[in-house]
Design a binder for these strands. Structure first.
Lengths: 224, 224
DNA sequence: TTGTGATATCTGATATATCACATATCAGAA
DNA sequence: TTCTGATATGTGATATATCAGATATCACAA
């Protein structure tokens, strides 16, 4: 969205949805936190209706649980869930790469290189918002090459759950540097049109829970 | 649910959700059909609130589109979507089989054989509800072996979208017989602990859009 | 002291009224 | 005749009031 509309046409439901997502991302709404509908609607200055609408969507997406007549809580993200999410994303991203390999051209490889480079720059400047976005953009290149809209939607939702979970102020530098190296290796394989190896690398290294586990435990604070 | 509760404690929202799902399954609510909230809430004898709650959930799951202030329509299921769904399910089911293979025992194989046999019986009796359910149960055995809850949830939702789409009165007998044969081949591979071959069979045959395309076109009436 | 029933309070669920945007129709001017 | 602005109608979005299940607390009987 590059233009800012004069009138705000975003529905209240969507605005509440975005507000709550943001609060979770910022760690204001932590796992286990109760969301009181009366208080929240009053604080936001809207009725309970768009709040409830937003919460129903957040529930379907896995972010909260609505306990009928008892309360709404923000879901924790367990290590098992992270493990599950990694496995699904790995399977779908590698499938996307393989099925979309015929569509991948030099320009895509070039673009991935530029995005990885932008990630390096962002890391130097400690601009983690940009780092995060370039990371998503890089992956989306080969995801989009498959033309499979369901893969895109599914991994987007899962990544949203992984990344919009309350995150610490700082990324883990070592992990991010490792990620960038992995991107480089992946891009190299794709450039050489070793698509099966690239797909395996996505699944067995980049999105391998076991390979990434030590960082994940640190990042999601499972080491206490 | 084997016991019928004396009091009906299912929320209206959930009852409306199930009602609408059923109407779609039965073909009463066809793709492209408009759902008028005033009329529907009146017909169901409930207010617009639980109806709207149910529709929001159905929208997130892909069944309907809520056009703000304009109307709610039942989404068509395009051939491209079916292709996308097949690819995702194939990828996830094969992943589930591979990652859960260590948990698969003779009792699981035996159970799959019994379920496939029950499918044969159901087909003879033209009892397609049972056929359908046994089919799901059979797949769920190796899906559950992975212990990956997100895989289960994802394929359940996608299958729901595929199977609860308005379906014709009759299945395609030839296709169902072919499916049963494919199950037999798959069970054979699993029994011999050829898990990689089994996973490939799931992805490249049983859930291959290209392999199943002629039946899919017939079933979903894309041949007009 | 413990257990049970009654009552109070909490909180989301639902009903109803009203709003606000989208679209169609009508009337008048050019 | 065509175009434009005003008005009417349609339909989901939102606000507000009330309901109804869940839980906590209190009082009384055993």
């Amino acid at each position: 969205m590059t233009t800012k509309h004069v009138l705000n046409l975003t529905s209240l439901k969507d605005q509440v949805y975005m507000y709550l997502s943001d609060q979770m991302k910022k760690g204001v709404l932590k796992p286990g936190t109760a969301i009181n509908m009366d208080e929240t609607s009053e604080r936001l200055g809207v009725s309970k209706t768009p709040l409830r609408d937003a919460l129903i969507r957040l529930e379907v997406e896995g972010f909260v649980t609505i306990h009928p007549r008892r309360g709404v809580v923000v879901n924790p993200l367990t290590l098992q869930e992270i493990r599950d999410y990694y496995q699904v994303i790995g399977a779908l991203e590698s499938t996307a790469l393989l099925s979309g390999s015929a569509s991948l051209e030099d320009s895509h490889v070039e673009k991935m290189r530029r995005l990885n480079k932008a990630m390096i720059e962002a890391l130097k400047k400690r601009n983690f918002g940009v780092y995060y976005q370039k990371n998503l953009d890089l992956h989306d290149i080969y995801i989009n090459s498959s033309g499979n809209r369901i893969i895109k939607m599914t991994v987007d939702t899962l990544k949203k759950r992984l990344y919009d979970f309350p995150r610490p102020k700082d990324y883990i530098r070592e992990w991010e540097e490792e990620s960038i190296k992995e991107h480089q290796a992946l891009i190299g394989l794709i450039a050489e049109e070793k698509f099966q190896e690239a797909a395996d690398y996505i699944r067995d290294v980049h999105w391998s829970f076991e390979v990434q586990e030590k960082y994940l435990r640190k990042y999601y604070l499972f080491d206490e």
